[in-house]
Nucleic acid binder design. Structure first.
Length: 115
DNA sequence: CCGTTGACGGCGA
DNA sequence: ATCGCCGCCAACG
């Protein structure tokens, strides 16, 4: 079980019409502070994979734009709007309203063991 | 093997 | 508030 698999498992839990941030997913996957790894994992998702990658946005509540995405950033916004997620005029999602709040009994924190 | 590269995030100026 | 810097680490040449 590599890191990507764990990341994909978490993303699969995000319900339709809700979003999570990269940092949030990292934390839930036991990868606190490694938000960038989540971005890289989602970059490698190809269509056909059963991963709702569009439901992950950055900490500002915006779709992360990049020329390397080759248009998938625009697609991401469209998919979210189709799920009922509303963007403000400046392209921001109100995280207070749409952020996913996972069942705490399903995501118990990893307790580091003293070496 | 090793340097570079990002779908990130937090902090300081 | 906004911008830049830097730590993060797997993938790629």
């Amino acid at each position: 079980m590599n890191s990507y698999q764990v990341i994909y498992e978490v993303v699969r839990q995000i319900p339709r019409g809700q979003v999570a941030t990269y940092g949030q997913v990292a934390g839930l996957a036991g990868l606190y502070g490694k938000a960038r790894l989540v971005g890289y994992a989602l970059y490698r998702v190809v269509d056909g994979d059963d991963v709702p990658w569009q439901r992950v946005v950055n900490a500002k509540g915006q779709v992360s734009e990049s020329p390397f995405r080759n248009g998938s950033d625009d697609l991401q916004r469209s998919l979210l709007e189709a799920e009922g997620v509303v963007f403000s005029a400046n392209g921001t999602i109100d995280l207070r309203r749409y952020r996913w709040q996972p069942d705490p009994t399903q995501f118990l924190p990893d307790i580091p063991v003293e070496g």
